[in-house]
Amino acid sequence: MEALLGSLEQLALIKALKTSFFAYPIVNALHILAIGALVTAVLLMDLRVIGVIRSLDEQPFVRLLRRVALWAFALAVLTGALMFAVRATEYAGMPLFWIKMGLIGLAGVNFVAFSLLRQPSAKRVLAGVSITLWPLVLLAGRFLGFVL
């Protein structure tokens, strides 16, 4: 594991990113953009499912926002992986990093369960779980930058 993380840090692209003046802040900014889009889409979807937002039809609204959320998540994973790789060993040794990954994992399980369930009352509960989990992921991620 240690060797794998070390070799990740030694990749030419990652070494360039490590001391770059422009690239790293741009990757960082794209990560923030992705998180903003993801959390916004998720919260709006959840509020629609729960019934706080009623002015728009649920199906087209959720279909659109789900697409936004999935693309935003993909961008967040890509940019996050790049920043992780710059200091892979350090991040992998931080409990907070694994708390964040665990929260994302829980949110993923919640998403799958939501997709499988049919009962509106159960879906509302899972939307409530989602509305709690994603801001916690954001919070854990933000704190990572301050404990390094």
Binding site: L43, L47, V52, I131, P135, L139, R142, F146
Partner: peptide, 25 residues
């Protein structure tokens, strides 16, 4: 109005614990 209250509460809940940590910059 309910939406506004929910969103405001969420924003405060997210922002409040982060503020002291900003000191690390």
């Amino acid at each position: 109005r309910r939406l506004r209250v929910v969103l405001l509460a969420a924003a405060l809940a997210i922002a409040a614990p982060v503020l002291p940590a900003l000191a690390h910059h």
